[in-house]
């Protein structure tokens, strides 16, 4: 049936405003703002409004800290024991002394790297490895420095490892007769060189007293009867070998010689005893005189 009232919308046309609204809703930017921007702003505003109160902030901060503390102090994360491996008792004692934390402590509070650095900082320790083992044990694996020579300096006797680091003081030489001795300022700067020279001097080992660092650059080998072998800066081992060969062939060191100067490799020089010189002059004179006669 036809409708009488012509105003009643049989009319499919949208009104101007609904048309405009629909066009607005189809605008890409507007839709994006509506879908993302407005929810974001709303959430942000609500959160900001809620958190702007100082008491709420504090309570939230407190709750978070409390929760954190609860987790950190669980028995799974606690460290009860410090185990030190590979260290002599005295070093172990030292480590325990400097260890800064009171056990038991939470493993969150321990800074393993700083503990490691602290242990490595001890003079007698070459390297250390610190880790937490299951069961709440903090393990420090320490490798000690091995003293190779006794170094006599102005400060007294000291034990020095291959890298030249002083590991310990020594009261008397007799405590460590097993180690060779070096002396002189800067003697610890070339410990490997000293060791090499001493190894090369093995054939005359019974005679060797020690090495003296001269001018912080070269070594003198000191023998028991006050004889000295002055070694050059370069290739001291080779020079020493030459001396040893000479001594073996001609019994050079058995003679009345004070100093064997090998500093110039082209020109090895000997200094004889004063009396020996006089004897030699006399003997020469005799021979010369006999010849003259």
């Amino acid at each position: 049936m036809q409708q009488v009232n012509s105003d009643t919308p049989n009319d499919p046309a949208p009104s101007r405003w609904s048309y405009r609204f629909q066009r607005l809703m189809l605008t890409p930017l507007f839709r994006k703002v509506l879908r993302v921007g407005i929810p974001f702003c709303l959430t942000f505003a609500i959160a900001a409004g809620y958190l702007s109160d100082r008491d709420r902030q504090d309570s939230i901060r407190l709750a978070v800290a409390d929760f954190r503390h609860q987790i950190e102090t669980r028995p799974e994360f606690m460290i009860n024991l410090l185990a030190i491996e590979g260290a002599s008792p005295s070093i172990e004692e030292d480590i325990r002394e400097i260890f800064p934390f009171d056990l038991p402590a939470s493993s969150f509070d321990l800074d393993l790297e700083s503990v490691r650095e602290m242990i490595v900082g001890l003079p007698a320790v070459a390297d250390a490895d610190v880790r937490v083992r299951q069961g709440g044990v903090l393990v420090a694996e320490v490798s000690e420095r091995e003293p190779v020579v006794v170094w006599r300096s102005h400060d007294g006797l000291a034990l020095v490892d291959i890298e030249g680091v002083v590991t310990d003081e020594l009261d008397a030489r007799s405590e460590r007769f097993d180690l060779p001795a070096i002396a002189g300022a800067g003697g610890n700067q070339d410990v490997p060189g000293a060791i090499a020279i001493l190894e090369a001097a093995a054939p005359i080992k019974a005679n060797v007293l020690g090495l003296v660092r001269i001018g912080e650059r070269r070594w003198d080998l000191v023998l028991k009867e006050g004889q000295r072998i002055l070694l050059p800066e370069e290739n001291p081992v080779r020079a020493l070998e030459r001396v040893i060969v000479l001594s073996q062939v001609q019994d050079m060191l058995e003679r009345d010689i004070v100093v064997v100067d090998m500093r110039l490799s082209d020109r090895p020089t000997l200094r004889m005893n004063e009396r020996a010189v006089e004897d030699w002059w006399r003997v020469t004179k005799l021979t010369v005189g006999a010849q003259q006669q």
Binding site: P12, A13, P14, R16, Y19, Q22, R23, L26
Partner: peptide, 12 residues
Amino acid sequence: RAIRTALQAAQK
């Protein structure tokens, strides 16, 4: 109005 109707439907 007729244009609006057609356009609205097409845009939709």
